[in-house]
Design a protein around this nucleic acid. Sequence first.
RNA 1: GCCGGAGUGGCGGAAUUGGCAGACGCGCGGGAUUCAAAAUCCCGUGGGGGCAACCUCGUGAGGGUUCGAGUCCCUCCUCCGGCACCA
Length: 1043
Amino acid sequence: MAETQSPQKPGTYDFRSVEPKWQQYWDEHDTFTVANPGDRKFDPGKPKCYVLDMFPYPSGAGLHVGHPLGYCATDIYSRYKRMRGFNVLHPIGYDAFGLPAEQYAIEHGVHPAVTTRKNIENMRRQLKMFGFSYDWRREISTCEPGYYKHTQWIFLQMFNSWFDDEFAWTDDRGRHCKGGARPISELESALARGAVWADDAMQLVRNCTQPHREWSTLTDDQKRQVINNQRLAYIDEIPVNWCPALGTVLANEEVTADGRSDRGSHPVFRRPLRQWMLRITRYAERLLNDLGPLDWPEPIKIMQRNWIGRSTGADVDFPLVSGGPEAPTVGDEAAWREARKACGFAARPEEYTIRVYTTRPDTLFGATYMVLAPEHPLVDRVTTPPQKADVGKYVTVARHKSDLDRTAETKEKTGVFTGAYALNPVNGEKIPVWVADYVLMGYGTGAIMAVPGHDTRDFEFAKQFDLPIVAVVQPDDEWLREQIQRGLVDADYCAKKGKPDLPEQLMDSASRAAGTIAGITAQDATAILDGDDSWINQVALPLFAEDPGVFVESFVGEGTSLNSPAPDATASLPDDVCDINALPTTEANDKITRWLEKNGLGKGAVNYKLRDWVFSRQKYWGEPFPVLHGPDGEIIAYDEHDLPLELPPMKDFKPTPVAADSDAVPEPPLGRATDWVTVQRDGKTYRHDLNTMPQWAGSCWYYLRYLSPDLSARVSDAMAEDYWMPVDVYVGGAEHAVLHLLYARFWHKVLFDLGSVSTNEPFMKLVNQGMIQSFAYKDRRGVLVTADQVEELADGTFKCKKTGEPVEQVVAKMSKALKNVVNPDDIIERFGADTFRLYEMFMGPIEASKPWNTRDVPGVFKLVGRIWRLVVDEETGRLSPALVDDPPDEATLRLLHKTIKRVGDDIEQLKFNTAIARFFDFVNQLTPRDRRPRAVVEPFILLLAPFAPHVAEELWQRLGHKESLAHAPWPTYDQALARDEAVEIAVQVNGKVKSRITVPVDADEKHVEQLARADETVGNAIAGKTVRRVIVVGGRLVNFVVG
RNA sequence: GCCGGAGUGGCGGAAUUGGCAGACGCGCGGGAUUCAAAAUCCCGUGGGGGCAACCUCGUGAGGGUUCGAGUCCCUCCUCCGGCACCA
């Protein structure tokens, strides 16, 4: 291969010597070191730009070609901004803690500290090889004690604070906001002085009309409970995702939809375990609202919104009226109603009340049964003796099911009747209480009112267990028509209800528009198939109103309330029954919610899908929790001056194997660091927490550490933080759309509330780089064939080397299995870093996923050579004789100015692929000229510099400049020269291009029209026809509309 | 199932956001240079038709809006990503 040979001519561009030369130069001259405010070298006159890459895991495999895609983009942008006179902060580091590092260490039998260090060294070497302009003095690694000291400090901030709903503040845009993190000491003093209280469940009460306890009457233990229940970091026993294969629990976000671990795809089981939790749910509203103004890709914002999953509705209380002998029941219902009416909706329900959350309170009259989640605390108590065995069995099975099992059988609903009954508060109906695992304990209240008429899941369940289905919302005609037209009538159900002929009659009527079905006579109606609404109203609607179960689907949309209350309601309705009949859904919701609130039976409520964040892992390679567990169960936080709490050195750091089905509490590896675990203080024995923090902890705030990586006292220096934050451009993979980006925003907001950072949001602009894919090959059966077994034929098709069969080229992920992984080291060895950078940027837009094709690389490699030869004579190695000091002619000058404008505009928009196309354009035009003015070539070298910095520096030096061009001013263009004087435009007749004419760029419409008419072809085309209209688009086209 | 994103030559991709479809690169064809090759430089390159100037079709499929649609609207197909009993 030619490009692997040493240069034949003395002046040929030799990237192998030039690239290391400049990398060394930049290092030695601190070219890319940037000063903080307050430093001697800091230039306060310049604007700032913080350009951030998502830092890599130092994996053993090193960088693959996907990483540098984002890194090249940010590097180009950073270099460009520097030349534009910005102070640019462009740092890099390593996300060195966490599962991948530990897994690698386990697999290779070496200590994670050792492998991590080695992997980091390799990555640093690779990163330097690309010529990235990082400020290497700010390099960080999350696994260094000097770094994780601060991770632990932030954790302590969360432990030592609570979310005060009433705290009022003003955001950076001057809006008044409510709710934020405050020091826990403020809560303690508020409790002590009686400004807030606790209730029997040791939860906070802010309203003295609600039942509460005086602070002084609580025991120390109870006081501790009240406080702990408010901390942003807390320990709770909750059902978590336990992954035996990895020996740890995982966050919900780390578990895939089919119940497997995100990493390694191991089975995951639900198990209740005591875990550290972070109260991210308290920030749900702010995380949602503050998304709006961010300059992020809309799909990412939508993903975060969906993940937060805000919904509005109402909490409603249903009192139990019967159940097992130990079941708490309401007793005197009338008295209960009176009490509720007097006191309002209770902060927490009485023990005999089932509280549900619904997004559709307008369907309350259609609630015909209730369902408790298997984990619901009332299940055991309400169950009647005859149901005990069934319910017990069902609950046990449900509890031990893995998520995989629970989702695997989505087709069929399961559940058991408890034997208990509750009262529907709006109509006094007695309805049965069931247990079923389609209700999740973790969402809402863990109990639902089932409205089978208007909810898909309840509908399926009701049909399965023969529960009544009532219509309370009238669907629109469209929906009913579609049901009939698609034949969605449930024959089995009709037969079961004693109407076996109904489906046929219905279909018959639908097509003939006559006769009587189910006692309803269709009159004056043409057939449904003719699209007649009166048939719908006369036949389909009454049928639906009587029993929605005859259809195969339930109507879940919005409509108009009916049967609310039912006209022939038998049960004793409340005196002031709420009538929402004939109201559209929105109004019905409002009215009934007001009624519920007035009667103390319910309250408007907001719910989120977002869960609190399970923040502990049973692993070795992570940040230890800086707390001590006392003999009485108290948790003592480390004093911040005692940080970091270092990870003890351990030889055996592997997870303790635990059988998948065992109930044994897993013992984290740290439990074996016996010297480390226990601590004596004041004669008492304390134990360290054996868990470590999850992988995300270090990456939640690393962008703050770059600001002052060596500062020991604080996360970052206040002046530096104030100057550099927020991050102006953040580039990384879309796989972090909800995990890292949501967690980091959460931490940032906590730090903001507590005064550690000055901005409400960390990342102003986010760009998601696409995936670099690779080619794979499929044979005729559609089986993938590895790349090494395929060869390309002369006609551009491919065949399998072994079988000779033709195979089809397809685009696939790079993977070891397909043997289509491209190693950046190889590419740089063959073509150099500048070519690599240019190629990746030229492939297409950064956001797009696109396949790597090494065949295309020589194209940009040639570009580098052509640019080189614009300046250097290959024969002699001296400056090219064509390079002259003459002033450029006008055409060349225009070319330059146009190029400056286009390249600058493209970089601003991060459209690097088209910027590189401009380079080709420029070179194509300049190469054939035998006189190439220095005044044109030099600015061009500056334009090239952000993209191909090594060759640009070398040429710049050879052109006689003593200093690096890294801080040379970006060339400016003259608006008048950047656009053409004359422009060729299209002339259309009736929208078809007939001819092209050249007109002055600023010619007025009349003149352009005249020129167009004067064109011969156009003249012929419109001759003898009436020109009805002439459209002139400046600089683009003329269109004659003739007829 | 729901929510996103994308479908443009043989390939990667352009298209000033409603105004000349295919910039630029790869590949391919031709030429120059060379004893020859590599490298380099120049020309051509969406399909079909015509000697030609030119005609005609063409941005996943079908309909629509418009003087004009790759771009906007409706219906559908395919691929990729995310979520998935969230009441």
